[in-house]
């Protein structure tokens, strides 16, 4: 007897199908929902993994690298009890760091590193030798500003214009080998926020080369007129008034309203 005929007998007593067709479609719907949930869960897991990785990288690796760049010879940063912010935590540092790193140097906050309306940083070269400081401050000066002239204190300088309505004057002074300075004062005319950015060379070297600032005058001009630098400070930060006493002393001071 052929196998097919034999198998027919085996299937005698087959139970009724009942509503199996509907059950199949209900099961298909459950399967679709399960797959959708799995897909969403997998997506959420990927997003969470990326977020955790990003968090770990930014909070662990970047500060660690900054810390590693801190030379043992420079006592002040090492002595600071204040956590060193990463580029991401400090938008001012984020704007300064690329230019410094392009020159194979390092930049990090210099205690007292920050206050309302101001920040200050130290620069070291690739041999961990100090290459001076960078100081920056913002001022709320809604009225017109008389940009000072280096050689003539009572005169107003002719301003240059940067994109997006920023007027500025650049000050470079390397006559004093012991205090070489590159500074820019810039003012955003839309809201009067004024910014002073200054790089100074390491003092006390008495040497034109080793006393040269870590950033050039052109770099200071470019960074100091960058809209992002104006926005890197909080809206209420201001070096005018009560907070002014803690603000850095610039080679070319920004005229205050009372001046």
């Amino acid at each position: 007897m052929p196998l097919t005929r034999l198998l027919e007998h085996v299937l005698e007593g087959e139970p009724d199908l009942g509503d199996e067709v509907d059950a199949v479609f209900r099961e298909a719907e459950r399967l679709r929902r399960r797959r959708t949930r799995s897909l969403l869960a997998a997506g959420a897991a990927v997003v969470a993994a990326i977020a955790v990785t990003g968090y770990l990288l930014t909070t662990t690796l970047l500060p660690a690298r900054e810390k590693a760049a801190t030379p043992a010879a420079v006592a002040t940063p090492a002595a600071s009890a204040v956590p060193v912010p990463s580029d991401i935590a400090d938008p001012v540092l984020a704007l300064l760091a690329p230019a410094v790193r392009d020159k194979k140097m390092h930049i990090y906050p210099r205690p007292p590193e920050r206050g309302s309306g101001w920040r200050q940083y130290s620069i070291t070269d690739q041999d961990d030798k100090p290459r001076g400081t960078v100081e920056v401050a913002v001022y709320r000066l809604p009225e017109d500003l008389c940009f000072p002239v280096l050689a003539k204190p009572n005169k107003c300088a002719r301003t240059e214009w940067a994109p997006a309505g920023v007027e500025y004057v650049r000050y470079d002074d390397d006559h004093d080998l012991d205090w070489q300075v590159h500074q820019t004062i810039a003012r955003r005319i839309s809201d009067g926020r004024t910014l002073a950015l200054m790089a100074t060379g390491e003092r006390g070297t008495d040497n034109a080369s080793t006393g040269k600032p870590g950033l050039t005058g052109a770099q200071i001009e470019k960074i100091g007129t960058d809209q992002r630098m104006f926005d890197a400070f909080g809206p209420d930060e201001d070096c005018v008034g009560a907070a002014a006493t803690a603000c850095p002393a610039f080679r070319m001071p920004v005229p205050q309203p009372a001046d």
Binding site: V24, F25, R30, L31, R35
Partner: peptide
């Protein structure tokens, strides 16, 4: 057999 058929056909449908 019923259980496996239902699961298989559900996959076919989905």
């Amino acid at each position: 057999a019923t259980e496996l058929t239902r699961a298989t056909m559900a996959r076919v449908v989905a």
